[in-house]
Design a binder for these strands. Structure first.
Length: 308
DNA sequence: TACCAGGTGAACT
DNA sequence: AGTTCACATGGT
């Protein structure tokens, strides 16, 4: 793999990073395992990454940009300490090293328009198809960047559908046109409050509350927001008890119970549930807590997803 | 085959 | 303001 032959490279000592878990946790969808490392790109820059223990080797990108993308400045220990819910504690320990990335705005925004009613593996397929078809290959590599808004705005809905987007093609095309024309500027959201930025995102076709929250979390560093998808809905519902709740109620509940870094907590729960490792206390056991802790049959497991 | 997936938007009560 | 429905695709 020839990534930027004589460009930047090096190695970093990382206190706490699980690169594989981070790149596979349903935030970014384009990283590909290559041998013991990962190839992909950060914005318009082709990148190779490899983690060996506490050492992170990188090629193609400068240290500063890499640290920004991987959010190595997030204090994970403090974030773990910010929520003392017993189920969260267990999930947080199982997700040590999982970091919420700082993704390029347009790329993250467009990719999450692909996400409704799709599994992570399918979002990956669609995003890779868009890159292959509409993205420009990065210098000297077979890796295409995510297509610009202009590139997608010039496509037809049928062309987008041919990448497997289904009904999502219309929203992506409409949003790409608004961004390409300058009518909507993703960069301008960074100075707005979270509420204002969310309203702005929700004005775009194909973006509702949940997708807007994903974008705010994964591209704008709004670590307090809680995207409520089917998984988080189930989990928060089980935290609350059997009473049925609207998505809005679950989101408010999550913001309150999961603490100031609710977005991080949500990501731990999502990742553990999706990989089949999250167990929840039985909803109303007649047994004592001590019994419930050791007797595994009294615990309820969140159903495993259809794996992709 | 039937069911599900990091939902949204429009049309209903 | 809450509920219901259509919307594409691919995997188990």
């Amino acid at each position: 793999m020839s990534i930027s032959p004589r460009s930047k490279s090096g190695a970093l000592e990382i206190p706490e990073l699980d690169l594989a878990m981070t790149l596979n946790s349903g935030q970014a969808f384009h990283w590909t395992a290559m041998g013991e490392g990962w190839t992909g790109c950060i914005g318009e820059t082709a990148v190779f990454l490899r983690q060996k223990g506490d050492k992170l080797e990188f090629r193609g990108i400068g240290e500063k940009d890499l640290c920004h993308y991987l959010a190595l400045d997030h204090d994970l220990e403090a974030i773990r300490a910010s929520c003392d819910h017993p189920v969260v504690r267990e999930a947080s320990l199982g997700c040590r090293g999982l970091r919420i990335l700082r993704q390029p705005r347009w790329e993250c925004l467009a990719t999450f328009i692909l996400s409704p009613m799709k599994q992570v593996a399918h979002i990956r397929q669609m995003s890779l198809a868009l890159r292959a078809r509409f993205g420009t290959p990065l210098s000297g590599t077979p890796i295409p960047a995510f297509p610009s808004a202009s590139a997608l705005a010039e496509a037809t809905e049928q062309e987008l559908r041919s990448c497997g987007l289904g009904f999502r093609a219309k929203g992506l095309l409409g949003t790409a046109r608004l961004v390409a024309s300058g009518e909507f500027d993703p960069e301008a959201l960074s100075t707005l409050s979270t509420e204002e930025a969310r309203d702005a995102l929700c004005s775009l076709p194909g973006i509702g509350r949940k997708v807007a929250n994903c974008i705010l979390l994964f591209a704008y560093g709004r670590l307090e927001v809680v995207p409520v998808d089917v998984w988080i809905g189930r989990i928060l519902g089980s935290f609350r008890g059997r009473r049925k709740a609207t998505p809005a109620e679950l989101e408010r509940y999550g913001e309150r119970v999961l603490g100031p870094y609710a977005g991080y907590v949500q990501q731990w729960l999502f990742h553990r549930a999706r990989t089949g490792l999250l167990e929840l206390p039985a909803k109303k056991s007649t047994k004592s807590k001590a019994t419930a802790r050791t007797a595994t049959p009294s615990r309820r497991r969140i159903p495993r997803p259809v794996t992709g």
